[in-house]
Amino acid sequence: MGEVGDAAASNGSGPSRELRVSTPPDYGVKALFDFWTQAGKAALDLHQGASANLASMVGKMPGFPFPPPAADGPDLTQAARTVASLWSTAAAISGSLQSLLAPGGEAAGGDSTVEATFRAIADPRVWFAQAGGLDSVISRMTEGAQLADLWRTEREQAQLAKTWLEWRRRSLEHQTVMLEAWVRAGNAFNQALAKRTGTDGVAPSGRALLDLWTTAANGVLLETQRSEAFLRSQAAMIRAGSELRLARRGLAERMAAEFDMPTRTEMDDLLRTVTELRRELRLVRRQAEEQVP
């Protein structure tokens, strides 16, 4: 029996990230493992670089009335490191799970659909893309179109940068919760697999294997979604997403005002007025109808 959970650098908090699996990863999975590890590190480096550049740029602006945003607060850095660490662990687990369905292996029972599906759902990225569908929806709605030409006003720029950093931090924190869940799901699956394999050493194959994973993952994910950590981090992410969108709107409205373009706020004022007028009209019409014998 090999252990592949050692790659995870525990930060001393949260659940145990050690994983015991019955099958070592194959070479194909190792490539996947390396990809994730490097991708996690690259994401961390990119994030830190972008934050440092932003802070440097804002700090050099002449007459800038506020202190520049920190390149990376310690909490943000820690969040990013935790995510990168968890990516490594998740990669190891995923590699182990997918090695069960290594080319030429028996586990898929010759069922290419099972194999493809299992490979897909054992990929931790899917947990963000589908199981965490709300997260991706919020991300998409928040990130929206770029406003490259509107970076003119230092005060608003600083505010936007601040809200963006907050959004990134909250997003990383939430990803941490999700990745920890994925690690727990991997462990639960392995335990269930060991139990099902029994003394004859023959593992279930095909859809039975997929069923096993589905049950294990579903249980862990549903439990996670009710946890205080998940609810708190997701609420924080929603809050940060709203603030980022509103900050971006503030910048857009400033520019719109300069060019005598109507703004979202003005439109909302009009819509409120129209709604109230329609409400009054309905009431008057109703009263008139009730007076008709």
């Binding site: 599906t117 759902i121 569908g133 991706s136 589905t214 993952a217 709203s242």
Partner: peptide
């Protein structure tokens, strides 16, 4: 305030969270 309405897409995502693996499969 940010989105104007409660987006239907957001509501759908919360529903999907109730049956996570089912939504995947």
């Amino acid at each position: 305030d940010a989105y104007g309405n409660l987006p239907g897409e957001l509501i759908g995502a919360v529903f999907n969270m109730m049956t996570p693996i089912r939504s995947m499969l």
